[in-house]
Computed example of a mutant assay.
Amino acid sequence: MLPGALLKRAIEAIRASGGWLPFDRFMALALYEPGLGYYANASPKFGHLPGGPEGSGSDFVTAPELTPLFGHTLARQVAQALQATGTDEVWEFGAGSGVLARQVMEGLDALSVPLRRYTIVDLSGDLRERQRATLRAHEARVTWADRLPEQLSGVLLGNEVLDAMPVQLLVRLAGQWHERGVVLDAAGGLAWADRPTELRPPLEVDGSHDYLTEIHPQAEAFVRTLAERWQRGAAFFIDYGFPETEYYHPQRHMGTLTCHRAHRRDDDPLADLGLKDITAHVNFTGIALTAQEAGLSVLGYTSQGRFLLNAGLLDLASQAGTRENALMQKLVNEHEMGELFKVLCLAPEACAAGWTPLGFATGDRTHRL
């Protein structure tokens, strides 16, 4: 029922847009259409086990779902940031199952760090209910919001959030740039169609070969909105991605757009609408430059593995069992999550001076953005 209802909605959107729907609008519909989109429906998403014959199970595992060592280590960084910026609130964007929120609050409690409020910003009503169940022991200080307030202060967290923001697709064909969108084929199904465009990647891509890539106006707009409303604190965005020179490398000619379902990847976002995740890697240079242009400061950028080791992961692992230590390796090993995932720290200029975030004490790569 769900794929058919969402497909019908997509067909309506294509017809309403004159027969050609830009991919970013299609991606927003596929992921966030109320009650039907992937993040707005009741299908399982996060966890260790893939979906079974009836679709039970999960589509992918995130770091906090893997081991509580992730969130407990991040809590050490959050504790330092709260103290350094004189704030007592945490805001988390796209909190998934709520496991990271629970781990961070557990970690702050273990460090005796006062936390007045933990606010989750999430558009999905179904995920909110899962978060409420996960966070029942902390419900006195947890609140939810579906949009940013006009003003906010606190430490901001976004784990695998930027990658889920809709992207525009650009494709160079025979030396000419086009924007890729979605149309209806002769049978009434979904198909790709390209239109000439003045849009370009932020870097010139060497060569004349055909080349598919993404640009990220919605993620950049999100950062600008934060800058307008955020008064004090520090933000930590953790996601898979690259600096600009790697993102738009001539050899990355098929882009980074991919789909996740039952712990498997595919490259067809037009199929199985609402039943799988659609995601693209993050251009961290674009995010950092947008932040700076909007008046924010970049306090650090490094790999997830280096960030966690700097923040005290090994100290916490020494107190954990064998299973957690084995899972911890996935967080830091270069061939697992340790190198592909990066951490970017931003702050309002008023909170940028006088401290160095723990996670960037060594191995900071800001100069490579």
Results as ranks from 00 to 15, higher is better:
residue 73 T to A: 08
residue 250 P to A: 09
residue 271 A to T: 13
residue 117 R to L: 05
residue 10 A to Q: 02
residue 281 H to Q: 13
residue 335 H to F: 12
residue 133 A to C: 00
residue 78 V to W: 03
residue 360 F to P: 06
residue 44 P to S: 07
residue 283 N to A: 04
residue 110 A to Y: 02
residue 19 G to P: 02
residue 218 Q to A: 15
residue 164 A to Y: 10
residue 35 G to H: 04
residue 94 G to T: 07
residue 280 A to G: 06
residue 1 M to R: 11
residue 288 A to E: 07
residue 237 F to W: 14
residue 8 K to C: 10
residue 213 T to Q: 06
residue 334 E to M: 00
residue 142 V to N: 14
residue 281 H to A: 10
residue 2 L to A: 12
residue 69 L to V: 03
residue 230 W to G: 00
residue 171 V to N: 14
residue 130 R to L: 13
residue 20 W to N: 01
residue 91 W to E: 01
residue 293 E to K: 14
residue 344 L to E: 05
residue 369 L to Q: 13
residue 344 L to T: 07
residue 73 T to I: 07
residue 123 L to V: 13
residue 200 R to P: 04
residue 30 A to T: 05
residue 259 C to K: 06
residue 238 I to Y: 02
residue 234 A to K: 05
residue 286 G to D: 11
residue 315 D to F: 00
residue 109 D to I: 03
residue 269 P to N: 06
residue 225 T to L: 14
residue 211 Y to E: 04
residue 318 S to T: 11
residue 17 S to A: 15
residue 340 L to Y: 10
residue 35 G to F: 06
residue 91 W to H: 09
residue 74 L to H: 06
residue 344 L to P: 04
residue 331 L to G: 11
residue 92 E to Y: 05
residue 9 R to P: 00
residue 111 L to T: 02
residue 368 R to H: 10
residue 58 S to P: 02
residue 173 L to R: 15
residue 94 G to P: 07
residue 228 E to S: 14
residue 49 L to D: 13
residue 348 P to M: 02
residue 98 G to I: 08
residue 267 D to T: 14
residue 317 A to F: 07
residue 27 M to R: 12
residue 204 E to G: 13
residue 82 L to W: 12
residue 24 D to H: 15
residue 265 R to Q: 13
residue 290 T to G: 06
residue 366 T to Q: 11
residue 163 D to C: 05
residue 104 V to Q: 02
residue 344 L to I: 11
residue 220 E to Q: 15
residue 66 L to R: 13
residue 153 S to H: 04
residue 150 E to M: 10
residue 98 G to V: 11
residue 295 G to Q: 01
residue 182 V to A: 04
residue 290 T to D: 01
